[in-house]
Amino acid sequence: MGFKLLSKLLVYLTASIMAIASPLAFSVDSSGEYPTVSEIPVGEVRLYQIADGVWSHIATQSFDGAVYPSNGLIVRDGDELLLIDTAWGAKNTAALLAEIEKQIGLPVTRAVSTHFHDDRVGGVDVLRAAGVATYASPSTRRLAEVEGNEIPTHSLEGLSSSGDAVRFGPVELFYPGAAHSTDNLIVYVPSASVLYGGCAIYELSRTSAGNVADADLAEWPTSIERIQQHYPEAQFVIPGHGLPGGLDLLKHTTNVVKAHTNRSVVE
């Protein structure tokens, strides 16, 4: 069995187990497998329904001669939608809004960016022009300005110390501490036991640490421990890039980060 097929099978099995364990909360999309990078042309966006009122959005972007996937989250909030992270750029984010209108038909009224990198804030200006209120932590807003990236308009308070959590509509926002970046936030959907790890969490097929220019490698494993301790009931975990899975993604990420750190020390 090929690795790609095995990865998709694991996603399907995880979703099936969740649907059985929580039949009222989960209505997993039966329309197909989780979209992969090879299936999404740059400039297009796919939506994948995880649970009743919960979707991931998947886009792709060219970077350094390669094409990478990027995940975000959409959560229903009454007759409105909360968006977590842009679709990595203005063109993708405009396509995301169009796809949401086509498939869901509810307005996106608020959006949260989970850290300051372009795959999370690139497209904020498109959201703002569409009347979406954009939010991020003060740290993310400051770092985005320093980096020359787009800056969300509103500040999220109460997320300055490791372990801080605040309720934001249908989700809980959690600051686990520094990891992929010093400002990275985690998003949890309690009604569906869905954990969105953003770039602080890796997919299972990833074996290298990737972009760690703004990471705190020493603190990252401790931050992941905080996530595990705060959300032990999480059933569906979405990484910032690639295929979702279960809580095993947290341990896998820790292993990859520690291996990278150990290699760096040896070198």
Rank of each mutant, 00 (worst) to 15 (best):
P239Y: 00
I201Y: 00
S113R: 04
A136Y: 03
I201V: 08
D125E: 11
A129S: 09
E225R: 11
L250P: 03
H241E: 00
L106K: 11
N255H: 06
A59K: 04
N255Y: 15
A179S: 05
G210Q: 06
H252S: 08
R167Q: 07
D248A: 08
H230A: 13
V124W: 03
A51L: 13
D214Y: 13
S208L: 08
L73Q: 02
D29Q: 14
L97G: 01
L249F: 03
W55M: 03
L10V: 08
D183I: 02
Q228D: 07
T86R: 01
E172F: 06
V237F: 05
Y48G: 10
H57W: 01
V37C: 09
T114S: 14
L9I: 06
E150L: 05
T134P: 03
A144S: 12
C199V: 00
R142V: 10
K251N: 05
A90R: 14
Y68H: 06
E39G: 09
A165T: 13
F3L: 06
L185N: 03
P138L: 11
S193D: 08
T14W: 04
A95E: 12
A95P: 02
I100V: 12
V11P: 12
H117M: 00
P221K: 15
L24Y: 14
V257L: 06
L217W: 15
V45H: 02
S162W: 13
H117A: 00
I84H: 00
I186E: 01
P244I: 05
T86Y: 02
G169A: 04
S27P: 07
D214R: 09
S160Q: 14
G210Y: 03
A66L: 10
L73F: 03
L97Y: 04
E267H: 15
K251F: 05
Y48S: 13
G131P: 04
R263V: 10
L83P: 00
L156T: 05
L195H: 02
R46I: 15
D248I: 14
P138Y: 15
N255Q: 15
S155I: 06
S62P: 06
H180Q: 02
N184C: 01
I224G: 02
G240D: 04
S31F: 09
F168Y: 09
E101T: 08
P69F: 15
K102P: 05
V256E: 04
F3A: 06
A95F: 15
G177M: 00
V166S: 08
L247C: 13
V121D: 01
V42A: 11
T140V: 03
L13K: 10
E99A: 13
V212T: 11
R167C: 05
A130I: 15
A136L: 03
T261M: 10
G89A: 02
N149A: 10
S27M: 15
N92D: 03
R76G: 10
G131Q: 10
F63L: 10
V11H: 05
V187M: 04
T222V: 12
T36S: 07
L10T: 10
I20A: 13
I20F: 06
P23D: 14
Q49K: 12
L83F: 03
T254S: 13
P107K: 15
R167Y: 07
S160F: 15
D85T: 00
D64M: 15
Q229T: 05
I186F: 06
D125H: 15
S205G: 10
D77Q: 07
A165C: 08
A15H: 06
P232R: 10
R167L: 06
I227Y: 00
G198A: 05
L217F: 13
S31G: 11
D29M: 13
V75H: 04
P69N: 11
A21S: 07
L47N: 00
D52N: 14
L6D: 13
A111R: 03
V54I: 11
I58S: 11
N149M: 15
V256C: 04
T60R: 10
L6W: 06
M1Y: 03
V237A: 05
D85N: 04
S208F: 06
G32D: 09
N184L: 01
A66W: 14
T207Q: 12
H115R: 01
A213F: 15
G242K: 03
P138A: 14
C199N: 01
D214M: 06
P244R: 04
H230R: 10
I104T: 08
R120N: 13
H154Q: 15
T207E: 11
A192R: 09
H115K: 00
L6E: 07
D29N: 07
N255W: 10
G43L: 05
A51R: 08
S113F: 10
S208G: 10
S205H: 05
I84R: 00
E150V: 05
R141H: 05
I40T: 10
R167G: 06
S137H: 08
N184G: 06
A90G: 13
K91E: 14
A215K: 05
S30K: 15
E147R: 12
A66K: 11
E33C: 14
L173W: 00
V194I: 09
A130Y: 13
W55I: 03
R263W: 06
I201T: 10
A94R: 12
R142Q: 12
L10R: 09
A90N: 09
G78W: 10
T134F: 02
S70Q: 04
S181D: 01
P239W: 01
T222G: 12
I17A: 06
G148H: 08
D64A: 08
G123F: 01
P176W: 00
H117Q: 02
E203W: 02
P35I: 08
V265E: 13
I151N: 15
L24M: 14
G197D: 02
T222R: 10
T182Y: 15
S181A: 09
A51Q: 15
A25Q: 09
S16Y: 13
H117G: 00
Q61Y: 10
V265L: 09
V237H: 01
L127N: 00
L82P: 04
T14L: 10
V75E: 02
D64Q: 13
H115G: 00
A90P: 10
G210K: 06
Y12Q: 09
A66F: 08
T14N: 05
L243D: 08
V146M: 08
K8P: 03
G2I: 05
I227L: 07
G158T: 11
E233L: 14
I201S: 03
A129Q: 14
I50G: 02
A111T: 12
G123L: 03
G163Q: 11
G177Q: 01
V67L: 12
Y48M: 08
S162P: 14
V126T: 14
K251I: 05
V124Y: 03
A94P: 03
V171S: 04
S161M: 12
R263D: 07
D77M: 12
T86E: 01
D248V: 08
L127S: 01
K102L: 14
I104W: 04
R120C: 04
D77W: 10
A15R: 06
E44I: 07
R76D: 10
R120M: 04
D85G: 00
A136H: 04
D125T: 07
A259R: 10
L9R: 07
G122D: 13
V121S: 04
V132I: 14
V67C: 13
D248F: 10
V108L: 15
N211K: 07
H115I: 00
T109W: 14
A218R: 10
Y202F: 05
S38C: 14
L159E: 02
G72C: 02
Y202S: 11
A51F: 11
L10G: 08
G32R: 11
Q229F: 11
I186M: 14
S38R: 09
S161P: 06
A59D: 07
T60V: 09
F236K: 08
S62L: 11
I238Y: 06
S208T: 12
S30R: 09
R76M: 07
E147K: 12
E172D: 07
